[in-house]
Design a protein around this nucleic acid. Structure first.
Lengths: 155, 155
DNA sequence: CGATATTATTCGTTATAACGACAAATGTCA
DNA sequence: TGACATTTGTCGTTATAACGAATAATATCG
């Protein structure tokens, strides 16, 4: 999202509060970086959301239930079902009902899914470096720290 | 494939580069803040994108062409047409072909659109304060500065 | 046992976004 | 003038994502 207010328009607008200024800078930056990542993922016809799910599943080889995936993301149950449907159709994940609690379905990443992620690891890392590397480790860590503080997670 | 941290079975966390860590913190934070804003906009049944367009148009009372709106946003021409369609249907904007260059269509915000924005100004401001106010002006400005630096805009 | 809660799923709807094709108006140049 | 390219906006299509309502299967508790 870009911002209407930072340009000299005809209409005189109220001065942005520090909160709003930071908010808009945050959205602008996140948008730009997301698009960069999306461009990399496009090589594998993967949406950022799908990539996110695969990354989550790579971190949990034992498998996750639909609800656990939802907890690690933000989208809700019905949507996760359809998101997983698409990934399953591409054989990137597998789903199996558990014997213990037959209500739950364990979702796992397949070897094909792992291979796809592996193909993306290096391009993704390069995209991050290309987009943020010029800040240097010190400022990157300062930025990450401020962002966590913004979410109330520390400092 | 090199996998710095692939302990068999428990590949829970991989080492994130400072770039990736900052990137993920950025997306997480932007996502949370966006959802907060979306919740406020929902009271007026407005999507963040629609809100963005209205804000842009409020800053340009003389009207903007479809392309100019596109320049200030990221979505492309064909999509903006339909985005404007929905806003026009709600009488929040008006469109009129210009006499000078009859190819272009000037879009303006209507009084109803301005009134809607005015109703949202205070709740939006409050949401920003609620979400980011605890950082204080100094850290907010530091954050905004780092974000601009991340985008390569010095300042 | 029955009532209730949980889990995953289905269906319907809306908005967003990308891609391509196309028409209208205009400008350019031979 | 007329052929051609350009700009601008429209339309069709597809995929994705998010929200709501509802259902089936299962588990849990009184």
């Amino acid at each position: 999202m870009k911002e209407p207010q930072s340009r000299a328009g005809a209409g005189r607008r109220r001065v942005a509060s520090p909160e709003e200024a930071a908010f808009l800078d945050l959205l602008r930056t996140a948008d730009r970086l997301s698009r960069g990542l999306a461009g990399v993922l496009k090589a594998e016809s993967l949406s950022p959301t799908q990539y996110n799910v695969l990354r989550i599943l790579r971190g949990a080889p034992e498998g996750l239930s639909c609800g656990e995936i939802g907890d690690r993301m933000i989208t809700r149950d019905p949507d996760i079902t359809r998101l997983l449907d698409r990934l399953e159709k591409r054989r990137l994940i597998s789903r199996a009902r558990e014997a213990r609690d037959r209500r739950t379905v364990l979702t796992r990443i397949t070897p094909a899914g792992l291979a796809l992620l592996a193909r993306l690891d290096e391009p993704v890392r390069q995209a991050h470096r290309r987009q943020l590397g010029h800040l240097g480790p010190a400022r990157l860590r300062a930025l990450a720290r401020l962002l966590r503080a913004a979410r109330g997670e520390n400092g």
